[in-house]
Amino acid sequence: MHNAERPAPASASYRERLSPSLWLIVSAAVCAPMAAIVFAPVDGTWALVIGLIVGIAIVVALIASAPRLRVDGTQLRVGRAHIDVSYLGTPEVLTGDEARAARGRDLSPNDWHLLRGGIDGVVRVPLTDENDPTTRWVFSSRTPERVAAMITRAQRGR
């Protein structure tokens, strides 16, 4: 009889892409007719083709370059930055006026932040590592309650 160990159950994870708002995408798409106008004196057909290519390229670049937010195992990843959840304190969920203040007047120069326009929710997490000059992580999320719950769950090791 074969006695193989069963793999540990995969830890719960959270993933979110902080994609640009619809208004930003529509605004970026306005570059298509602008590019077409520039090339219109050369050739009308080529101007339309180039305008379409420019518009599509800008929209695709905006979506593809959108940062990702992930909680995997014991790591919190926001954009390119990552930190072990053992160095984090209790996450704070902010929406509405509190979120606006956190993105503006309450944002400390010692905070690490990744904030996106068009995303109302903000998660603010204090750092407990005394050797780190950063005091808190402040970042946008469309579902800040879920992010905070996943960070807390990862901290408990479930």
Rank of each mutant, 00 (worst) to 15 (best):
P144G: 15
L76I: 09
V147G: 08
T135W: 02
V138W: 05
A35R: 06
D129C: 08
R146E: 08
L94M: 13
P144W: 10
R136T: 02
S21M: 06
A36L: 12
L94E: 04
G96A: 09
A81C: 09
I56F: 14
D84Y: 06
I37G: 10
F139S: 03
I58G: 02
L107C: 12
A99Y: 14
A81T: 13
I83V: 15
S65M: 03
R70I: 01
R158I: 15
L76W: 06
A35C: 09
P133T: 06
V59S: 05
E16R: 15
D129I: 11
A12E: 13
A66Q: 00
V138S: 03
I25L: 14
E92A: 10
R68M: 04
R100L: 12
I25V: 12
A36P: 10
V71R: 02
G117T: 13
L62G: 07
L48K: 08
L88G: 00
G79I: 00
L107R: 07
M150F: 10
L114M: 09
V125Y: 01
P41M: 02
A101K: 13
A32I: 15
V38K: 03
V38S: 03
R100H: 11
T135N: 05
L22C: 08
V78R: 05
I119Y: 09
E92N: 12
L88P: 01
A81S: 15
A29N: 11
A32K: 14
P91E: 07
I50T: 10
G89T: 07
L127V: 01
A47F: 01
R124M: 08
Y14M: 05
V138N: 05
D120W: 15
I119K: 13
R70N: 03
A61C: 11
M150Q: 14
W23C: 04
A64N: 13
G55Y: 12
V93M: 12
P20I: 08
H82I: 06
G44M: 06
G44A: 07
S11E: 08
A99S: 14
D132I: 09
A101V: 07
N110F: 12
S13L: 04
R136M: 02
L48P: 01
H113I: 13
P67G: 00
I63R: 14
S11N: 03
P109G: 06
I53M: 15
G121Y: 10
T152G: 07
V78H: 07
T45V: 14
R116G: 00
I58S: 00
D106N: 13
N110G: 11
I53W: 10
S141M: 13
G79T: 05
Y87E: 01
